[in-house]
Computed example of a mutant assay.
Amino acid sequence: MTVMFKSVLVAVDGSEIGHRALEEALAVARAMEASVHAVHVVQTATYPSLTLNQLEPPDIAQQALLDALDREADEILADVEQEAAAIGVPLTVHKRWGHPGAEIIALARELGADLTVVGSHGKGRLGRFFLGSTSSYAVDHAASTVMVVRGEPDAS
């Protein structure tokens, strides 16, 4: 029995492992003629003083941070679009704010993605302390298949 994927969602964060996850997702999508969606989640939990559900607008410092994070997300997604276009794979980008794992899984359900591709770890403010937390969340909560793309082994 051959497994066929019709819709692939890949999480991208601008890291090397995120790039490798994108390459794998594009290869699968191309081979199976599947639609491809890329999502970048701005991890707001990394910034405890930043809450997006406040009744009052953000102060100047918070707004500057929001703007910088928004620009970074746009740059990452623009790079993803260019890479997909260069190999002729149509791709739709999505930007979300919040907990990466929860937002990735929510979008996968919204899209009806039957394959979600995530890196084994990406970039984050707390470094290796949260190594793999997003991929673990995706594996534990996904309603469909999750592909975890591993990074290069540590030399240590």
Rank of each mutant, 00 (worst) to 15 (best):
V3F: 14
V3M: 12
M4D: 05
F5T: 04
F5A: 13
F5Q: 13
V8P: 07
L9D: 06
A11T: 11
V12A: 05
D13L: 11
D13E: 13
D13R: 12
G14Q: 12
G14E: 11
S15A: 07
S15Y: 03
E16F: 02
E16K: 15
H19A: 09
H19D: 04
A21T: 03
L22H: 03
E23L: 15
E23D: 15
A25Y: 02
L26S: 03
L26E: 02
V28T: 03
A29K: 07
A34N: 11
A34E: 08
S35M: 00
S35R: 14
S35T: 06
H37S: 12
P48W: 09
N53P: 00
L55R: 07
P57C: 07
A61M: 12
Q63L: 14
L65K: 10
L65G: 07
L69C: 09
D70R: 11
E72H: 09
E72C: 04
A73D: 01
A73I: 03
A73Q: 08
D74M: 09
I76M: 02
L77A: 10
A78N: 14
A78Q: 06
V80G: 07
A84Y: 01
I87A: 05
P90Q: 11
L91P: 02
V93M: 02
V93F: 04
H94K: 13
K95G: 05
P100D: 06
A102F: 07
A102Y: 09
I105L: 09
I105F: 00
A106Q: 14
L107M: 09
A108L: 05
R109N: 09
D114Y: 04
D114C: 04
T116C: 08
G119P: 04
G119L: 02
H121C: 10
G122D: 11
G124I: 03
R125T: 10
G127N: 10
R128Y: 05
F130K: 11
L131C: 00
L131H: 14
S133C: 09
T134S: 01
S135G: 12
S135H: 02
S136N: 15
S136W: 00
Y137R: 14
A138G: 00
V139E: 11
S144T: 02
R150L: 03
E152G: 11
P153I: 06
D154C: 09
D154K: 02
A155S: 15
